[in-house]
Design a protein around this nucleic acid. Structure first.
Lengths: 237, 237
DNA sequence: CGCTCTATTGATAAACCTCAAATACAGTGG
DNA sequence: CCACTGTATTTGAGGTTTATCAATAGAGCG
């Protein structure tokens, strides 16, 4: 037939070590993987929108997603960046839930997704997968709680330093200049991620550029002195 | 023998409708419940501490817990209040994890808890329970993400209003004066919950008291005009 | 080359924290 | 029952951080 699911897709090696497929045999991985639908999304493409019925569970294979939430009056926050090997929209496992956030591709992004019937089959046939999902949820929870803590007790510049480091670790790419955050990232997005304004972000980055910690351009940031940033993020001065 | 688990405990009716035991038969509930250990903790008692190896999963039956996280220099945040029917320390399902927060009883509190061997047995024998745990984790995640959003875009007074309303809904007790938040709650704790200082909390509450929205005393808050608070929490003015 | 989106920078104001000091309250032990 | 003691709370003054507004500069795209 003609659906995407028909062709047996090879399970990507890059995913075999991820939390998603931990403890599963090779055959099981391939089966689970092939229950899903593979798709490649262009940069800026919206995979799902906050408030829509949550119908599919997503796993990022390559590229990345930006998860955002809207507040009244158009203000938006970046909840998280999703990288290869990460699930998102776990809420879709439960019927009648809505997506709690909007997902947009930050670069060309390959995902696998499962609809509810497929998920129920998987959850039923591979209990280990359910446990893996639980583990991912628990880890996300921990991460967000840490961000909540940081947001409450740290000042803007310290949070910005942490954010850059996190993004660097998650999506960094070595260049001869330093470590490049490997997708388009505006000052506004960074502000939405750290709970500040684009003005403050701009000022702060300018300062760090003068100190030689980073090197930045339009929608582009390269961390040239990670060590200094780490020290700053921990000490806050 | 002599352990607490020996006596067959009746499954509490109050829990039968909670997310924790959804979709499970009465017999299954009783079995799961009896794998655990019942305990009553005094107010202020610490059930587990951030950083310790996570050995037990907890379910609150009566009373409540305060989950806190510490930052360097003693600053602390209240991550969440746990009420009857809620799990906490889901991280304990996974070996080698540490408790991500500290849990302290806010009043006399009854909990059931399971150690790892019991949990593994339960997760294995009652897959529906695993799914329920996942659901709880997903809902917490959503809740925390909403708090993150509020913390980033709303001003202190608005967050305080939301916090009071949340606590009122979760732990409110009708009195002839209004709805009492039914446990000791200091200004400092409210500040740690909303990401501000006790001074700002005090000033704000004083203002609301003059407006007749609340009535407060030492470690005690009664919401006398919930409607006004709701309006304020949504409009922010 | 002009258009549009992004970033920078300065000036100003608002929100909020910090520090200090006084006051109120609850529980305790005589 | 009352004075005492340790917290919790209130309130004021002053300072810091950060948001807001406005104007300009730069980068990429067609």
């Amino acid at each position: 037939m003609f659906t995407l699911m028909e062709s047996e897709n090879k399970f990507p090696d890059s995913l075999s070590e991820t939390a998603a497929f931990k403890g599963l045999g090779e055959a099981e991985r391939a089966q689970i993987y092939n229950y899903g639908e593979r798709r490649i999304h262009k940069p800026e493409a919206v995979l799902f929108r906050e408030g829509e019925p949550a119908l599919r569970l997503y796993l990022v294979v390559e590229g990345g997603l930006k998860l955002t939430k809207l507040h009244e009056e158009g203000k938006e926050t970046v909840v998280r960046y999703i990288r290869p090997g990460d699930f998102t929209a776990a809420a879709a496992v439960f019927s009648e839930k809505k997506y709690p956030a909007t997902a947009k591709a930050v670069s060309s992004t390959e995902v696998v997704s499962w609809d509810q019937p497929a998920m129920w089959r998987i959850l039923n046939d591979y209990p280990r997968f359910t446990v893996n999902l639980l583990q991912v949820a628990v880890e996300r929870l921990d991460e967000i709680q840490n961000r909540l803590l940081e947001l409450q007790v740290e000042k803007v510049e310290q949070r910005l330093a942490r954010a850059l480091l996190r993004l660097m670790e998650q999506s960094g790419k070595r260049t001869d200049e330093g470590i490049l955050i490997n997708f388009r990232l505006t000052r506004q997005e960074l502000a939405d991620y750290t709970g500040t304004t684009l003005y403050t972000v701009s000022r702060t980055l300018s300062g760090w550029e003068k100190k030689g910690w980073i090197s930045s351009g339009r929608e582009k940031i390269v961390v040239t002195d990670p060590h200094a940033l780490v020290a700053f993020s921990e000490a806050g001065s």
